[in-house]
Every structure is written in structure tokens, then in C-alpha cells.
């Protein structure tokens, strides 16, 4: 069926709940209201208030109780209503979710999927447009995924719900309803830790993920370029092999993400390429990201979020070098 990312995620959660009776959802406004983006719409009616829990308004409580539920044998799916508010539960995620396995030498495992909408471009208030992937990826111990298509969203969610690790599941708000795609009704997995080559090419490699994927695709199509586009899908653990293989083929690299440039995912990728494939490069690496400052109020976001023109210019720079 042709569905958007919201419907794909809703379907994945429903299938996951049918498959494993220990999967429970918890968060603010996820039940009766169906979530502010309707990702969990209808699930309370289908599974009851015992498994779809409208919690009090407290993110540290949501993340912390989810950890306890996981220790107690459940597979919780806590939601932070927006990534900016997940920071109120940050301590629980980095101090505990990321470390329970290593501190207990795997005698305690935390199967849980932490969902939150991320990134901007949709004119929302302060704290509703954050791209926080680096914070969670930097720590180690937390898997960080970010789909850019309905198909990947569903497959990654199914996979995450079958894993025995805490997965930070980042859902780009802007892509929730941007387009529909053919998605199977039944459960299927998209592997975690594997990037997807969304377009093969030999002129240059563009590594991207999240909101920048459709932007990059458009630019490449318009420029009629033989570019190879890699959608990371999983940010941590990074699919280094896929990136290096492509770089060896093309010798030119652009890395594009919406998060601010400094100390971002692009810096990590660029460093790995420099360490392992610098002699394969025909041009310096170019990164595209937001300026090194907090996400602005909506009036300024069009000057902040990298757009097609910025990507296009970065490609020109790499191709001309």
C-alpha cells in the first residue's frame, strides 16, 4: 500500500505489539489523542490502556520508568513529544540506558525503543526542531537510527522492536507526511547498522540522512549528476564500510545533514574518511550543515536549515576541485 511515514510507523508499532505482548507504549498524549503527530493513533483502542499509557508530563519519569520496565522484562517504547523535551530525560538515557548492559556485563539488557520527532523546517516554536543525534551517538551504548522514508521507518521499527538494545528512534517531523511510498502490510526488517545506497553513481559520494535525503535526491536529479547517494539510516553504529567503499569508487565526498556543523555526524564521517581513505580522495571533503548555533525561531529557519542551493553549491565545489 502507498502510505506515509506516520502510517508506516503506526503499522510497525501495531505489528510489534501483536508479535510481542511485552511491548508497551508510554508517553504524553500518545493514547487518547493518538500522539501529537498521530503516530500512535488508534493503538489505545486496539490494545487498551494497559499497553498504551498516557503518562504524567515528565520526561525523566517516562525514560526512567521505561528503563525499569525493560529490566522487568517488558519491551517499552517511550516517546518524547519532541526531541527538545527529551533532554529532560537525558540523564536516564545516558547515565542508565546506555550503560546498563556494560555495567552488568550483559546480565541486564534493556530492550527499548525511544521514539521522538526531530529536525525542523516546519515553522514550529522553540525546542520543536532540534537535531540531537550527536548527543546520543557520542555516548556509545545507544543505537541511533533515523529513517528518511516510510519503508525504512517501518522496517527499522520492526527490527528495533526485535532487538535487545536501547534504540533511539529519531523521526524527522518534516518527512512524516511529505510523501507516500509502497510499503508491505506485513512485518519486515530493515537492518540496523547498514546504510542504504539510494542511488548508485561514480562521480561523487553524498552521505546524508534524515531531512536532507529528499533535498539531496532532488538536487542530484536536477543536476543530472552521476552521484552515489548514501542514506545512513543508522547513525550509530556507523556503517563505515559502506561509506569507505563508495569513497574509493568516487574519490569525491559531500556530507549533508541538518544538524549544526560543529562536532556533528559529518565531522565523524569526515574524520574516518581522512583516516582510512585520504589517498583515495581527488578533492577535499565538503560538509553541509546548519550554522554552529542553536536552532532559531521559525522566522529565521529558512536562513538556517541547509537547503537545495547550499547542497548544490557544495557539490559544485567538490566537483570543481
Amino acid at each position: 500500500m502507498q502510505i506515509n511515514m506516520v502510517t508506516a510507523l503506526n503499522s510497525a508499532l501495531e505489528l510489534g505489539m501483536r508479535e510481542n505482548e511485552n511491548v508497551v507504549l508510554l508517553g504524553e498524549d500518545i493514547g487518547r489523542d493518538g500522539g501529537v503527530f498521530r503516530v500512535t493513533d488508534g493503538l489505545m483502542d486496539k490494545f487498551g490502556e494497559k499497553r498504551v499509557i498516557d503518562t504524567p508530563l515528565a520526561e525523566s519519569g517516562i525514560m526512567g520508568t521505561a528503563i525499569g520496565m525493560a529490566i522487568g522484562g517488558l519491551h517499552p517504547v517511550p516517546e518524547a513529544q519532541f526531541a527538545g523535551f527529551m533532554f529532560l530525560g537525558f540523564s536516564q538515557l545516558v547515565n542508565h540506558a546506555a550503560r546498563y548492559r556494560s555495567r552488568s556485563r550483559s546480565t541486564i539488557q534493556l530492550p527499548m525503543v525511544v521514539r521522538t520527532p526531530v529536525s525542523g523546517g516546519v515553522r514550529t516554536l522553540e525546542h520543536h526542531s532540534e537535531s540531537p543525534e550527536t548527543y546520543y551517538a557520542h555516548m556509545g551504548g545507544l543505537i541511533v537510527v533515523e529513517p528518511s522514508t516510510p519503508y525504512d521507518a517501518k522496517g527499522l521499527m520492526i527490527k528495533a522492536l526485535r532487538m535487545n538494545d536501547p534504540v533511539i528512534f529519531l523521526e524527522p517531523t518534516k518527512l512524516y507526511r511529505l510523501f507516500k511510498q509502497e510499503v508491505p502490510d506485513e512485518a519486515y526488517e530493515v537492518p540496523i547498522g547498514k546504510a542504504s545506497v539510494v542511488r548508485e553513481g561514480s562521480a561523487l559520494t553524498i552521505v546524508t540522512y534524515g531531512t536532507m535525503v529528499p533535498v539531496v535526491k532532488d538536487v542530484v536529479a536536477k543536476k543530472n549528476l552521476d552521484a552515489e547517494i548514501i542514506d545512513l539510516r543508522t547513525i550509530n553504529p556507523l556503517d563505515e564500510d559502506a561509506i569507505l567503499a563508495s569513497v574509493k569508487k568516487t574519490g569525491r565526498v559531500v556530507i549533508a545533514h541538518e544538524a549544526s556543523l560543529s562536532f556533528g555526524v559529518g565531522a565523524e564521517i569526515s574524520a574516518r574518511i581522512a583516516e582510512k581513505a585520504i589517498f583515495e580522495l581527488d578533492a577535499p571533503i565538503v560538509r553541509v550543515g546548519s550554522p554552529s548555533m542553536p536552532y532559531p525561531f521559525p522566522g529565521y529557519e529558512k536562513f538556517y536549515v541547509p537547503n537545495a542551493l547550499k547542497v548544490s553549491q557544495a557539490i559544485d565545489k567538490v566537483m570543481e576541485a
Partner: peptide
């Protein structure tokens, strides 16, 4: 230098 990338291809 790039007018904040507000051109034909850019913008929203």
C-alpha cells in the same frame, strides 16, 4: 557571500 542561499533553487 551567498545571500543565505536564498535563490531560485533554494528557499523553502
Amino acid at each position: 557571500k551567498n545571500n543565505f542561499w536564498q535563490g531560485e533553487e533554494g528557499g523553502e
